[in-house]
């Protein structure tokens, strides 16, 4: 029986990797993957808590998150592709149209 704290630790580590990746990576695809990492880390902790509390709510939420992540991935990738058609790179710094 793996104790709950291990799951949480795993989740935290994965989330941290995601956060750091989100901040330091430049390639939009990598940033995207980092976001997925964060989402999945949350999924891990949700599933763990669900098991620990013997409640289905957590697992239902996991499905929600997976769905949202899938939708987000679809839209996000579409945007990236659209962007790539206009610019020869997908480096985050070059996509600064929102600069005030």
């Amino acid at each position: 029986m793996v104790p709950l704290s291990w799951y949480i630790l795993l989740s935290t580590v994965v989330f941290g990797i995601g956060v750091i990746g989100f901040i330091i990576r430049r390639n939009l695809i990598m940033i995207f993957l980092s976001i997925e990492l964060m989402l999945n880390s949350v999924n891990i902790s949700l599933a763990a808590f669900s098991h620990y509390l013997q409640s289905m709510t957590g697992q239902i939420l996991v499905f929600f998150v997976i769905t949202v992540a899938a939708a987000e991935a679809a839209i996000g990738l579409a945007i990236i592709i659209a962007l790539y058609r206009h610019k020869p790179s997908i480096t985050a710094e070059e996509v600064n149209l929102l600069k005030g």
Binding site: V19, F22, E93, N96, L98, G100
Partner: peptide, 15 residues
């Protein structure tokens, strides 16, 4: 000026 347009800086601020 806060609006840099850089995703990573927005991310940093969010974090």
């Amino acid at each position: 000026r806060i609006q840099t347009g850089l995703l990573s800086s927005y991310g940093l601020i969010m974090v």
